[in-house]
Protein backbone atom coordinates (compact mmCIF):
# COMPACT_ATOMS: atom_id res chain seq x y z
CA UNK A 1 0.00 0.00 0.00
CA UNK A 2 2.77 2.39 1.01
CA UNK A 3 4.55 1.48 -2.22
CA UNK A 4 1.61 2.44 -4.39
CA UNK A 5 1.34 5.75 -2.56
CA UNK A 6 5.04 6.45 -3.10
CA UNK A 7 4.66 5.71 -6.80
CA UNK A 8 1.71 8.09 -7.00
CA UNK A 9 3.60 10.84 -5.19
CA UNK A 10 6.44 10.45 -7.67
CA UNK A 11 4.09 10.40 -10.63
CA UNK A 12 2.66 13.72 -9.43
CA UNK A 13 6.14 15.16 -8.76
CA UNK A 14 7.38 14.23 -12.23
CA UNK A 15 4.20 15.56 -13.81
CA UNK A 16 4.79 18.85 -11.98
CA UNK A 17 8.43 18.92 -13.11
CA UNK A 18 7.40 18.36 -16.73
CA UNK A 19 4.77 21.09 -16.45
CA UNK A 20 7.30 23.52 -14.99
CA UNK A 21 9.58 22.61 -17.88
CA UNK A 22 6.85 23.39 -20.41
CA UNK A 23 5.87 26.66 -18.73
CA UNK A 24 9.50 27.84 -18.38
CA UNK A 25 11.56 26.41 -21.24
CA UNK A 26 8.41 26.81 -23.36
CA UNK A 27 8.77 30.58 -23.35
CA UNK A 28 12.48 30.61 -24.17
CA UNK A 29 12.01 28.07 -26.97
CA UNK A 30 9.06 30.21 -28.13
CA UNK A 31 11.26 33.30 -28.28
CA UNK A 32 13.59 31.30 -30.57
CA UNK A 33 10.63 30.31 -32.77
CA UNK A 34 9.67 34.00 -33.07
CA UNK A 35 13.20 35.05 -34.06
CA UNK A 36 12.50 35.14 -37.83
CA UNK A 37 9.63 37.60 -37.24
CA UNK A 38 11.81 40.18 -35.52
CA UNK A 39 12.50 43.39 -37.43
CA UNK A 40 16.28 43.46 -37.23
CA UNK A 41 19.41 42.17 -35.46
CA UNK A 42 18.95 44.67 -32.62
CA UNK A 43 15.48 43.32 -31.84
CA UNK A 44 16.81 39.77 -31.92
CA UNK A 45 19.51 40.78 -29.42
CA UNK A 46 16.79 42.18 -27.15
CA UNK A 47 14.73 39.01 -27.53
CA UNK A 48 17.69 36.85 -26.57
CA UNK A 49 18.62 39.14 -23.68
CA UNK A 50 15.07 38.63 -22.33
CA UNK A 51 15.80 34.91 -21.78
CA UNK A 52 19.61 34.61 -21.54
CA UNK A 53 19.98 34.63 -17.71
CA UNK A 54 17.30 31.99 -17.12
CA UNK A 55 17.24 29.53 -20.05
CA UNK A 56 19.81 27.17 -18.52
CA UNK A 57 17.81 26.79 -15.33
CA UNK A 58 14.64 26.29 -17.39
CA UNK A 59 16.20 23.46 -19.37
CA UNK A 60 17.29 21.76 -16.15
CA UNK A 61 13.62 20.83 -15.56
CA UNK A 62 13.92 18.68 -18.68
CA UNK A 63 16.86 16.87 -17.10
CA UNK A 64 14.80 16.42 -13.94
CA UNK A 65 11.92 15.08 -16.05
CA UNK A 66 14.15 12.59 -17.90
CA UNK A 67 16.37 11.75 -14.94
CA UNK A 68 13.36 11.56 -12.62
CA UNK A 69 11.55 9.19 -14.96
CA UNK A 70 14.69 7.00 -15.06
CA UNK A 71 15.06 7.06 -11.30
CA UNK A 72 11.43 6.74 -10.20
CA UNK A 73 9.94 4.73 -13.08
CA UNK A 74 12.80 2.84 -14.72
CA UNK A 75 10.44 0.43 -16.47
CA UNK A 76 8.45 3.24 -18.06
CA UNK A 77 11.69 4.99 -19.04
CA UNK A 78 13.02 1.74 -20.54
CA UNK A 79 9.80 1.21 -22.49
CA UNK A 80 9.33 4.77 -23.77
CA UNK A 81 12.83 5.90 -24.72
CA UNK A 82 13.53 3.21 -27.35
CA UNK A 83 10.00 3.70 -28.74
CA UNK A 84 10.51 7.46 -29.11
CA UNK A 85 14.17 7.11 -30.09
CA UNK A 86 14.19 9.28 -33.20
CA UNK A 87 12.20 12.29 -31.92
CA UNK A 88 14.16 12.22 -28.63
CA UNK A 89 17.50 12.27 -30.44
CA UNK A 90 16.17 14.97 -32.77
CA UNK A 91 15.16 17.07 -29.76
CA UNK A 92 18.57 16.61 -28.12
CA UNK A 93 20.47 17.59 -31.27
CA UNK A 94 18.26 20.66 -31.76
CA UNK A 95 18.72 21.67 -28.10
CA UNK A 96 22.49 21.46 -28.61
CA UNK A 97 22.38 23.94 -31.47
CA UNK A 98 20.18 26.46 -29.77
CA UNK A 99 21.92 26.05 -26.39
CA UNK A 100 25.41 26.83 -27.63
CA UNK A 101 24.03 29.61 -29.85
CA UNK A 102 23.42 31.80 -26.76
CA UNK A 103 27.18 32.19 -26.30
CA UNK A 104 28.28 31.58 -29.88
CA UNK A 105 26.09 34.39 -31.30
CA UNK A 106 28.13 36.84 -29.25
CA UNK A 107 31.50 35.31 -30.11
CA UNK A 108 30.95 34.92 -33.83
CA UNK A 109 31.85 37.64 -36.29
CA UNK A 110 29.48 38.62 -39.14
CA UNK A 111 29.07 35.22 -40.84
CA UNK A 112 29.32 33.34 -37.57
CA UNK A 113 26.67 35.48 -35.92
CA UNK A 114 24.29 35.02 -38.89
CA UNK A 115 24.80 31.25 -38.80
CA UNK A 116 24.27 30.96 -35.03
CA UNK A 117 21.17 33.15 -35.28
CA UNK A 118 19.73 30.61 -37.72
CA UNK A 119 20.94 27.75 -35.49
CA UNK A 120 19.25 29.33 -32.46
CA UNK A 121 15.95 29.86 -34.23
CA UNK A 122 15.97 26.60 -36.18
CA UNK A 123 17.10 24.66 -33.11
CA UNK A 124 14.27 26.14 -31.03
CA UNK A 125 11.71 25.26 -33.72
CA UNK A 126 12.97 21.70 -34.26
CA UNK A 127 13.34 21.00 -30.52
CA UNK A 128 9.74 22.12 -29.96
CA UNK A 129 8.40 20.10 -32.89
CA UNK A 130 10.36 17.06 -31.65
CA UNK A 131 8.85 17.49 -28.19
CA UNK A 132 5.44 17.57 -29.85
CA UNK A 133 6.27 14.33 -31.69
CA UNK A 134 7.39 12.78 -28.39
CA UNK A 135 4.15 13.90 -26.75
CA UNK A 136 2.05 12.64 -29.65
CA UNK A 137 3.90 9.33 -29.77
CA UNK A 138 3.50 8.99 -26.00
CA UNK A 139 -0.23 9.75 -25.96
CA UNK A 140 -1.07 7.34 -28.77
CA UNK A 141 0.76 4.56 -26.87
CA UNK A 142 3.72 2.35 -27.75
CA UNK A 143 3.94 -1.33 -28.75
CA UNK A 144 5.26 -3.36 -25.83
CA UNK A 145 6.11 -7.01 -25.33
CA UNK A 146 6.75 -8.03 -21.70
CA UNK A 147 7.51 -4.42 -20.82
CA UNK A 148 10.08 -3.88 -23.59
CA UNK A 149 9.51 -1.86 -26.75
CA UNK A 150 8.52 -4.19 -29.60
CA UNK A 151 7.53 -1.80 -32.40
CA UNK A 152 9.20 -0.16 -35.39
CA UNK A 153 11.46 2.90 -35.50
CA UNK A 154 8.75 5.13 -37.05
CA UNK A 155 5.72 4.05 -34.98
CA UNK A 156 5.58 7.53 -33.47
CA UNK A 157 5.10 9.18 -36.86
CA UNK A 158 1.33 9.55 -37.36
CA UNK A 159 -1.03 12.37 -38.42
CA UNK A 160 -1.88 12.68 -34.73
CA UNK A 161 1.73 13.22 -33.62
CA UNK A 162 2.27 15.71 -36.45
CA UNK A 163 -0.82 17.63 -35.34
CA UNK A 164 0.47 17.70 -31.75
CA UNK A 165 3.90 18.87 -32.97
CA UNK A 166 2.42 21.75 -34.97
CA UNK A 167 0.18 22.71 -32.04
CA UNK A 168 3.07 22.70 -29.58
CA UNK A 169 5.06 25.01 -31.86
CA UNK A 170 2.12 27.44 -31.81
CA UNK A 171 1.76 27.01 -28.05
CA UNK A 172 5.43 27.68 -27.24
CA UNK A 173 5.38 30.65 -29.63
CA UNK A 174 2.44 32.02 -27.62
CA UNK A 175 4.38 31.57 -24.37
CA UNK A 176 7.38 33.27 -25.98
CA UNK A 177 5.33 36.20 -27.28
CA UNK A 178 3.65 36.65 -23.91
CA UNK A 179 7.06 36.57 -22.19
CA UNK A 180 8.28 39.29 -24.57
CA UNK A 181 5.27 41.46 -23.65
CA UNK A 182 6.49 41.18 -20.06
CA UNK A 183 10.18 41.74 -20.80
CA UNK A 184 10.39 44.27 -23.61
CA UNK A 185 9.39 47.83 -24.44
CA UNK A 186 8.98 50.09 -27.46
CA UNK A 187 8.47 48.70 -30.94
CA UNK A 188 9.28 45.13 -29.95
CA UNK A 189 6.71 45.32 -27.15
CA UNK A 190 4.02 46.41 -29.65
CA UNK A 191 5.03 43.64 -32.01
CA UNK A 192 4.92 41.06 -29.18
CA UNK A 193 1.37 42.18 -28.28
CA UNK A 194 0.27 41.59 -31.88
CA UNK A 195 1.94 38.16 -31.83
CA UNK A 196 -0.01 37.26 -28.67
CA UNK A 197 -3.31 38.26 -30.32
CA UNK A 198 -2.61 36.29 -33.50
CA UNK A 199 -1.26 33.24 -31.68
CA UNK A 200 -4.16 33.10 -29.22
CA UNK A 201 -6.47 32.41 -32.18
CA UNK A 202 -4.13 29.82 -33.71
CA UNK A 203 -3.63 28.07 -30.35
CA UNK A 204 -7.39 27.97 -29.73
CA UNK A 205 -7.90 26.17 -33.04
CA UNK A 206 -4.92 23.87 -32.42
CA UNK A 207 -6.09 22.91 -28.94
CA UNK A 208 -9.58 22.11 -30.20
CA UNK A 209 -8.08 19.97 -32.98
CA UNK A 210 -5.75 18.04 -30.66
CA UNK A 211 -8.55 17.55 -28.10
CA UNK A 212 -10.90 16.07 -30.69
CA UNK A 213 -8.15 13.89 -32.16
CA UNK A 214 -7.20 12.61 -28.69
CA UNK A 215 -10.77 11.38 -28.21
CA UNK A 216 -10.22 9.02 -31.15
CA UNK A 217 -6.95 7.59 -29.79
CA UNK A 218 -8.46 4.92 -27.56
CA UNK A 219 -12.00 3.87 -26.50
CA UNK A 220 -11.00 4.47 -22.89
CA UNK A 221 -10.43 8.16 -23.60
CA UNK A 222 -13.76 8.38 -25.43
CA UNK A 223 -15.51 6.77 -22.48
CA UNK A 224 -13.84 9.04 -19.95
CA UNK A 225 -15.00 12.22 -21.70
CA UNK A 226 -18.32 10.77 -22.83
CA UNK A 227 -17.75 12.19 -26.30
CA UNK A 228 -17.46 10.21 -29.52
CA UNK A 229 -17.80 11.13 -33.17
CA UNK A 230 -21.48 10.18 -33.22
CA UNK A 231 -22.85 10.82 -29.76
CA UNK A 232 -22.33 12.66 -26.50
CA UNK A 233 -22.90 11.08 -23.11
CA UNK A 234 -24.07 14.29 -21.43
CA UNK A 235 -23.88 13.29 -17.72
CA UNK A 236 -20.23 12.26 -18.19
CA UNK A 237 -19.26 15.15 -20.41
CA UNK A 238 -20.90 17.84 -18.28
CA UNK A 239 -18.61 16.97 -15.36
CA UNK A 240 -15.58 17.70 -17.52
CA UNK A 241 -17.09 20.42 -19.71
CA UNK A 242 -15.64 23.25 -17.55
CA UNK A 243 -12.16 22.42 -18.88
CA UNK A 244 -12.76 23.24 -22.56
CA UNK A 245 -14.91 26.22 -21.51
CA UNK A 246 -12.14 27.61 -19.32
CA UNK A 247 -9.65 27.06 -22.18
CA UNK A 248 -11.89 28.95 -24.59
CA UNK A 249 -12.28 31.75 -22.06
CA UNK A 250 -8.51 31.99 -21.56
CA UNK A 251 -7.95 32.20 -25.31
CA UNK A 252 -10.53 34.99 -25.51
CA UNK A 253 -8.87 36.94 -22.68
CA UNK A 254 -5.48 36.45 -24.32
CA UNK A 255 -6.86 37.83 -27.57
CA UNK A 256 -8.43 40.80 -25.81
CA UNK A 257 -6.01 41.06 -22.90
CA UNK A 258 -2.96 41.73 -25.01
CA UNK A 259 -4.00 45.36 -24.60
CA UNK A 260 -3.77 45.19 -20.84
CA UNK A 261 -1.65 47.45 -18.65
CA UNK A 262 -0.35 44.48 -16.60
CA UNK A 263 2.48 43.19 -18.74
CA UNK A 264 2.84 39.89 -16.90
CA UNK A 265 -0.84 39.00 -17.42
CA UNK A 266 -0.56 37.53 -20.96
CA UNK A 267 2.18 35.16 -19.80
CA UNK A 268 0.11 34.17 -16.77
CA UNK A 269 -2.92 33.50 -18.98
CA UNK A 270 -0.79 31.45 -21.41
CA UNK A 271 0.55 29.30 -18.58
CA UNK A 272 -3.00 28.83 -17.31
CA UNK A 273 -4.02 27.74 -20.81
CA UNK A 274 -1.23 25.16 -20.85
CA UNK A 275 -2.28 24.03 -17.37
CA UNK A 276 -5.84 23.38 -18.58
CA UNK A 277 -4.57 21.43 -21.58
CA UNK A 278 -2.20 19.48 -19.35
CA UNK A 279 -4.98 18.66 -16.91
CA UNK A 280 -7.21 17.51 -19.76
CA UNK A 281 -4.46 15.23 -20.99
CA UNK A 282 -3.90 13.83 -17.49
CA UNK A 283 -7.65 13.09 -17.22
CA UNK A 284 -7.58 11.33 -20.61
CA UNK A 285 -4.61 9.13 -19.76
CA UNK A 286 -5.23 8.46 -16.07
CA UNK A 287 -4.05 6.10 -14.53
CA UNK A 288 -1.34 5.23 -17.06
CA UNK A 289 2.29 6.38 -17.06
CA UNK A 290 2.85 4.53 -20.34
CA UNK A 291 -0.54 5.10 -21.99
CA UNK A 292 -2.86 2.13 -21.83
CA UNK A 293 -0.01 -0.26 -20.84
CA UNK A 294 1.71 0.64 -17.55
CA UNK A 295 0.53 2.34 -14.37
CA UNK A 296 2.90 4.19 -12.02
CA UNK A 297 2.72 1.28 -9.57
CA UNK A 298 3.78 -1.19 -12.26
CA UNK A 299 6.62 0.96 -13.58
CA UNK A 300 7.99 2.19 -10.26
CA UNK A 301 11.45 1.67 -8.85
CA UNK A 302 11.90 -0.19 -5.57
CA UNK A 303 10.26 1.42 -2.53
CA UNK A 304 13.54 2.22 -0.82
CA UNK A 305 14.74 4.07 -3.93
CA UNK A 306 11.53 6.12 -4.13
CA UNK A 307 11.66 6.84 -0.39
CA UNK A 308 15.31 7.92 -0.50
CA UNK A 309 14.61 10.28 -3.39
CA UNK A 310 11.58 11.70 -1.63
CA UNK A 311 13.75 12.54 1.39
CA UNK A 312 16.00 14.43 -0.99
CA UNK A 313 13.27 16.07 -3.02
CA UNK A 314 11.22 17.32 -0.04
CA UNK A 315 13.86 19.76 1.19
CA UNK A 316 15.58 20.36 -2.18
CA UNK A 317 12.60 21.23 -4.39
CA UNK A 318 11.46 24.18 -2.20
CA UNK A 319 15.07 25.41 -2.08
CA UNK A 320 15.38 25.09 -5.87
CA UNK A 321 12.08 26.91 -6.38
CA UNK A 322 13.21 29.62 -3.96
CA UNK A 323 16.47 30.43 -5.68
CA UNK A 324 14.87 30.08 -9.10
CA UNK A 325 12.28 32.65 -8.02
CA UNK A 326 15.09 34.83 -6.67
CA UNK A 327 16.93 34.75 -10.02
CA UNK A 328 13.70 35.67 -11.87
CA UNK A 329 13.10 38.50 -9.43
CA UNK A 330 16.67 39.71 -9.90
CA UNK A 331 16.24 39.88 -13.68
CA UNK A 332 12.67 41.23 -13.55
CA UNK A 333 13.51 44.53 -15.28
CA UNK A 334 12.55 45.08 -18.89
CA UNK A 335 15.28 44.64 -21.45
CA UNK A 336 16.60 48.03 -22.58
CA UNK A 337 17.44 49.20 -26.06
CA UNK A 338 21.08 48.70 -25.23
CA UNK A 339 20.59 44.97 -24.67
CA UNK A 340 24.16 43.92 -24.29
CA UNK A 341 25.93 40.80 -23.20
CA UNK A 342 27.53 40.33 -19.80
Amino acid sequence: MFGIELALIWAVLIAVAVFLYVALDGFDLGVGILFPFAKDARERDQMQAAIAPVWDGNETWLVLGGGGLFAAFPKAYAALMPALYIPIILMLLALIFRGVAFEFRHQGRATGKRWWTIAFSGGSLVATAAQGLVLGGFVQGVALDKGAFAGGPFDWLTPFSLLVAASLVAGYALLGAAWLVYKTQGALFDRARRWVMQLSVIVAVAMAGVSLATLGIDPRVTARWGVSMTSIDWPVFLQLAPLPLVAAGLCFFLWRGAETRNHLLPYGLSVALFAVGYLGLAISLWPYIVPFAMTPGEAAAADNALALMLWGALPMLPIILAYTAYVYWLFRAKVGDDAAYH
Binding site: T60, G67, F70, A71, A72, Y77, A301, A305, L308, M309
Partner: peptide, 15 residues
Amino acid sequence: AGSVIGPLLAYEVLT
Protein backbone atom coordinates in the same frame (compact mmCIF):
# COMPACT_ATOMS: atom_id res chain seq x y z
CA ALA B 1 19.68 -1.05 -12.41
CA GLY B 2 17.31 1.95 -12.20
CA SER B 3 16.30 1.34 -8.59
CA VAL B 4 19.95 1.42 -7.51
CA ILE B 5 21.62 3.97 -9.73
CA GLY B 6 18.62 6.21 -10.52
CA PRO B 7 18.48 7.92 -7.11
CA LEU B 8 22.15 8.89 -7.47
CA LEU B 9 21.41 10.69 -10.72
CA ALA B 10 18.25 12.23 -9.24
CA TYR B 11 20.34 13.61 -6.38
CA GLU B 12 22.78 15.02 -8.92
CA VAL B 13 19.97 16.98 -10.57
CA LEU B 14 18.49 18.13 -7.25
CA THR B 15 21.73 19.16 -5.54
